[in-house]
């Protein structure tokens, strides 16, 4: 179990929450289709996310969440704050994807679940990791409203679940992530803003009399 600190916004493909190297998951279209068919009331603010996750864990392979896990989820998924509601929405969307038989039937996904100690353990790792990977980017329903966010969500889900989209290698998956990742675009935007600011500061510093006085030179170049 990890703490509730969001992942550092590096823009890189989210880390896998499952031990071992990534395996081939289903085609990306399987997840996109699943997200498109997500019932609107899944993200109703009155849904008790912890209970939904706990019920799914039992249904998947009989995993019963211990009190520590339940307390942890309750703290993270509490609907009293906007952050808690966003976290709960991502936990529910992760659960919705794990609950898809078309995903769990893929051999690579079964392998990932085995590496996580079983399908229930796999669910808990993903429910824990996905909201951190996507923290602060969108409110719950906004993940489903457009193609771009749906792909970003699907790719982040596969990444934390220890999977690659079928037909992609790790490099291709990382490049495709960079293209859809909101965090990555924000990092790039911040980088470019920093570079512009530095160029301005460098010009200003070099123009200062302190810089122009220079320093005594010992050698000729």
């Amino acid at each position: 179990m990890s703490d509730v600190t969001p992942d550092e916004p590096t823009g890189r493909l989210p880390s896998s929450a499952v031990p071992g190297g990534r395996t081939d998951g289903p085609p990306l279209a399987v997840l996109l289709h699943r997200l498109t068919s997500c019932p609107a009331d899944l993200l109703d603010p009155h849904v008790h996310a912890t209970a939904a996750v706990a019920d799914l864990a039992v249904a998947l392979d009989g995993t019963v969440l211990d009190p520590a896990w339940l307390r942890h989820l309750d703290e993270r998924l509490a609907a009293g704050t906007p952050e808690g509601r966003d976290t709960a929405a991502l936990a529910l969307l992760a659960s919705w994807l794990v609950a898809d038989p078309a995903l769990r039937g893929v051999p690579g996904a079964q392998d990932a679940a085995a590496r996580a100690g079983g399908t229930g353990g796999w669910l808990l790792r993903v429910v824990d990791a996905l909201p951190r990977a996507l923290a602060g980017l969108r409110t719950g329903p906004a993940w489903l409203a457009q193609d771009g966010p749906r792909e970003e969500l699907a790719r982040a889900f596969l990444a934390v679940a220890g999977l690659r989209p079928a037909g992609e290698d790790d490099d291709l998956a990382a490049d495709a992530w960079a293209a859809v990742s909101t965090a990555h675009q924000r990092v790039l935007t911040a980088q470019m803003a920093q570079e512009q600011e530095r160029a301005r500061e460098l010009a200003a510093r070099l123009a200062e009399q302190r810089a122009k006085e220079a320093a005594a030179q010992y050698a000729s170049y």
Binding site: Q194, E195, R205, A211, A214, A215
Partner: peptide, 21 residues
């Protein structure tokens, strides 16, 4: 053409001296 593109962004600029060539 673009000196700033070659200057690291993580070094404080408060001690820059101007050399020319």
């Amino acid at each position: 053409a673009d000196l700033a593109a070659h200057v690291p962004v993580d070094v404080p600029l408060d001690r820059v001296l101007e050399g020319t060539s």
